[in-house]
Design a protein around this nucleic acid. Structure first.
Lengths: 223, 223
DNA sequence: CCGTATCCAATAAGATACTG
DNA sequence: CAGTATCTTATTGGATACGG
């Protein structure tokens, strides 16, 4: 139609910036684009590959994921790496600095889960459910409980360790798990937050530890 | 290929949601739109009117501000009020719940200010500069300093009180200020964070308190 | 399997004018 | 002042198609 650039914008003001010195405005320029915070969430527990990110981010398209990853890389939030040959798989890793934001974003997630409009019936990714454990762990319920629970979500492996009324969540295999749970991330929600029995997940190992573990999380009160 | 819902538009596919039960995804549906976090920032210290918001958000257009305010109101983050007659001015106020998010967003702002790309030469709003004080106050520098500094940014009035190595930032007039500074918010930046002398701002009152006050803030280290 | 490039339709944002 | 209305531009997401 009209190919003429109306020059309204004048110089190459390519990006839409906020022109605001407030750090928050800059945060939005760094991670304010659609999907960006969720990409960071997926990188929270370690490097991931393109297809894994795509699978964990239902609805993102390949081109948008590419844009986000390259954008985040340009801004110093993500580093792209090649695993050593022969695998030579490219993976994306959050920088240490980006990880600090991820911690803050966790809190934002906890805050939002109080909203009346929050629908927990949607699917969750493995990282998302592990993050929910990190953020909804209630130290006051833990007493002197101590245990390591391994989670197998298909090929993906994570574990949570509770000790001294603190929780640690990591990717990979623990040195020694008390109990291992193999399931879909979504199956964990009713057990963690709905009081469903852990037996439904067929835990392997110390079932008593599994049972107790699942009682240590509480969603913040709804509004 | 075999998507049955390929019917182009799909009618009721109203909003673009993330379809992700993770709280963070819902947070983005609540405040992930462009400008939304900055609107909340402006409401951080109390209710504001439409024109004040527009003035503090350089670059936002009236229709987008309207959309944000009505959207935030629908989602329970903002309440619209009418001041009692004869003024009858409509004002927008953040709900208590939204204020919790604002606190987290502050942290995000502090995080982002470490970025190499952060340009502090852009203008800041009164609320933004007050927020920077809140978030960059360094208790370890405060010792037993005690003082109340009032800020007049045109008609807008704010104050900061430091006591017991804590800072409190509010809108309005303090019961008794040690010193009052009338200036543009931007003029405060070099004094707070660049070591410029407070005398350049012509403080009225206890200048020694003003001088000491300005030394109690430190930006996080750049990357 | 890991992406990138391109085209297109649907939205969101921006600029401007205008009304009560 | 407090917004609507309207039009233009930019970004998004989906669907391929294509290269390593």
């Amino acid at each position: 139609m009209k190919l003429e650039k109306t020059t309204k914008v004048g110089r190459a003001e390519a990006k839409r910036g906020y022109e605001d010195a407030c750090g928050l405005a800059h945060a939005l320029e760094l991670i304010g684009e659609r999907w960006a915070p969720l990409v960071l969430r997926e990188l929270w527990l370690g490097p991931r590959r393109f297809s894994g990110l795509r699978a964990s981010l239902p609805g993102i398209s390949a081109n948008v994921l590419t844009q986000r990853l390259t954008g985040l890389e340009e801004r110093g939030l993500v580093r792209r790496k090649q695993l050593p040959p022969p695998s030579s798989v490219p993976v994306y890793q959050a920088t240490e600095w980006a990880m600090e934001a991820a911690t803050t974003l966790c809190q934002l997630g906890r805050w939002a889960s109080r909203a009346p409009g929050h629908d927990p019936s949607h699917p969750v990714s493995p990282v998302a459910i592990m993050m929910s454990m990190k953020v909804n762990f209630d130290p006051s319920l833990a007493g002197d409980f101590k245990g390591i629970v391994a989670f197998h979500f298909g090929e993906a492996r994570y574990f949570a360790e509770i000790r001294d009324a603190q929780i640690r969540v990591e990717r990979g295999d623990p040195t020694s798990a008390d109990v291992t749970i193999s399931c879909d991330p979504n199956a964990l929600k009713p057990v963690l937050y709905g009081g469903a029995p852990v037996e439904s997940l067929r835990p392997e190992g110390n079932i008593e530890i599994a049972r107790r573990f699942m009682t240590l999380f509480s969603l913040p009160p709804k509004l």
